[in-house]
Structure formats: structure tokens, C-alpha cells
């Protein structure tokens, strides 16, 4: 029962942090999208179709962020057996998968007018598709083992180990455009380029784009918190029901030896 001490503290913060993140995220993301799509500049070469970037880049970032969260939380789950870590890893899977899918869909819609094709099997696109399949595999594994009593033990560990192994794909996605010839262009954003304003992307694109990334990251955080609260509430309710069933059985005198 020691594990429920920390979830209590988590719930105290998450109660107000969840709606705060979701509302602030939705407001900031909508403002950034209206700004970029409605008032931002068109690209000199690509024209108006470049405006898909304000959706494509945040979803790509969060698709990779989602698996990074799973990997870090899985590591904490395996090493320290922290019960909240297993819950956090499971909670991050759905938003991560949704944003990865959105990244692939918006990229495909952007690719048709910009490249002349909906899809190519180059390193970046393929490794991102592999990430989506990794999410599906993780969710199936986590779903198959979610009824185990304690996270981080027995079968619950399989999902955590899978989460750690799958993290290999994250650097592959990032470096795919640098290691191999690909149709996808190399990164446009870098810390030094943004700070000095001399990166390959003009500042009038960078500012609404980073605002959009901030907004979507807050939405992602809010969704992860909401799903953590959901998983926590489910396991608390199940633990309570199990204890009650055990007490009732003990009262009726039907004592099983294993207990």
C-alpha cells in the first residue's frame, strides 16, 4: 500500500493541473494556428501550402516526445518500481500514437502538392511509420498486462521493456535525414538558429511555429494527466472491490488456503 501515498500527492496537483494544461494548450494552439495560417507569410518557393507546418511539426515533435516519455517512465518503473511511472508510461501511449498518426497524415497531405507524391519509402517517413506500429504494439502489450496487481512486476514489465527497446527508433527518426539521402529535408530548427535568428527558417515562420509547439505540448501534457487519473481511479476502484470481496468471503467462512 506504500504506493498510494505518492498517487495521493499526484492527485492533489493533477486535479487543477489537468484542466489548466488542456484549456491553456487549446487556447495557445488555436491562437498560433490562426496567426500562422491566417496572417503568417507564404513561403517563397512553396507558397500557401507551407502553412501545414504549424500542425505537422508539433505533431511530429509530440509523436517522438510520447515515446520518449514512455521510455523514461518505463526506466523508472523497472529500476525504482515506482507505481506512478508505470501509469505514466501507459497514459502517454494513446496521445503519442494519435500525434504520430496526425504527423503522418498531415505530412502526406503536404507531400502531395510540395513533392508531387503522397508517400515515399524514404528513411524519415518509414521510421516515423515504424514508430506508429511500435505504439500499436505497446498499447496491445500494455492492454494485455494492465490487470496485474502491481506495475513493474511480472507481465507488467514486458510493456516497460518494450518501451525501452522501442526508444532505439527515436534517434533513427531524428538522424534519418542526415544519415541517408531522403526526400524529406534536413531539420530547419536548431537552438542556435532560433536564438540568433539566422537559422534556415525565417523568424516570421519560427515564432508562430514555436507558439504552436508550446500549445500542443500543453494539450499533450493535459491528456497524459487525464489518462493517468483515469488509470489510477480504475486501479483504486478495483483494489477496493477486491478487498471488499475478500472481506465478504472471509465473513462467510469460505476461506481459501492460498490467502
Amino acid at each position: 500500500m506504500h504506493g498510494f501515498a505518492n498517487p495521493a500527492r499526484f492527485l492533489r496537483i493533477a486535479t487543477w493541473a489537468t484542466p489548466l494544461c488542456l484549456i491553456a494548450g487549446l487556447l495557445i494552439a488555436s491562437a498560433a494556428l490562426v496567426w500562422g495560417v491566417g496572417f503568417g507569410p507564404a513561403d517563397a518557393l512553396q507558397g500557401d501550402v507551407v502553412r501545414i507546418i504549424y500542425l505537422h511539426v508539433p505533431t511530429a515533435w509530440l509523436g517522438m516526445m510520447g515515446w520518449s516519455s514512455i521510455a523514461i517512465a518505463s526506466f523508472v518503473e523497472i529500476v525504482w518500481r515506482h507505481p506512478l511511472a508505470g501509469i505514466a508510461a501507459r497514459a502517454a501511449a494513446l496521445p503519442g500514437a494519435v500525434f504520430t498518426a496526425l504527423c503522418l497524415i498531415t505530412g502526406s497531405i503536404w507531400g502531395r502538392p510540395a513533392w508531387g507524391t503522397w508517400w515515399v519509402w524514404d528513411g524519415r517517413l518509414t521510421s516515423m511509420l515504424v514508430l506508429l506500429f511500435l505504439y500499436f504494439g505497446y498499447m496491445a502489450l500494455a492492454g494485455a498486462t494492465q490487470h496485474d496487481e502491481a506495475p513493474g512486476q511480472g507481465q507488467g514489465r514486458m510493456a516497460a521493456i518494450f518501451g525501452l527497446i522501442g526508444a532505439v527508433n527515436i534517434p533513427i527518426i531524428h538522424y534519418s535525414v542526415l544519415w541517408w539521402n531522403s526526400l524529406h529535408q534536413p531539420p530547419s530548427l536548431s537552438v542556435s538558429g532560433v536564438v540568433t535568428g539566422t537559422g534556415p527558417m525565417a523568424t516570421s515562420f519560427v515564432v508562430p511555429l514555436l507558439t504552436s509547439v508550446l500549445g500542443f505540448t500543453l494539450i499533450y501534457t493535459g491528456v497524459v494527466l487525464a489518462r493517468m487519473r483515469m488509470i489510477l481511479a480504475d486501479s483504486q476502484a478495483e483494489a477496493r472491490l477486491r478487498r471488499k470481496a475478500m472481506a465478504a468471503q472471509a465473513r462467510s467462512g469460505a476461506l481459501a488456503e492460498g490467502w
Partner: peptide, 29 residues
């Protein structure tokens, strides 16, 4: 049999078309 356009990592506003990226950055500055 088929052509695909590959663009680079540079994004320049249309108003600055014709300028090089360096010129555009100077104009912004």
C-alpha cells in the same frame, strides 16, 4: 518516368522572394 520535387530546409517569406537567405535575414534585422 516520374519526378518528385525535393525542397531544402530553408523557409523564406514570399515578400522576400529574390533575396538570398542572408539578404532576407539582413532585411528582417
Amino acid at each position: 518516368d516520374n519526378l518528385l520535387a525535393k525542397h531544402d530546409e530553408k523557409y523564406t517569406p514570399r515578400e522576400m522572394q529574390g533575396m538570398t537567405t542572408d539578404q532576407a535575414h539582413k532585411a528582417i534585422a
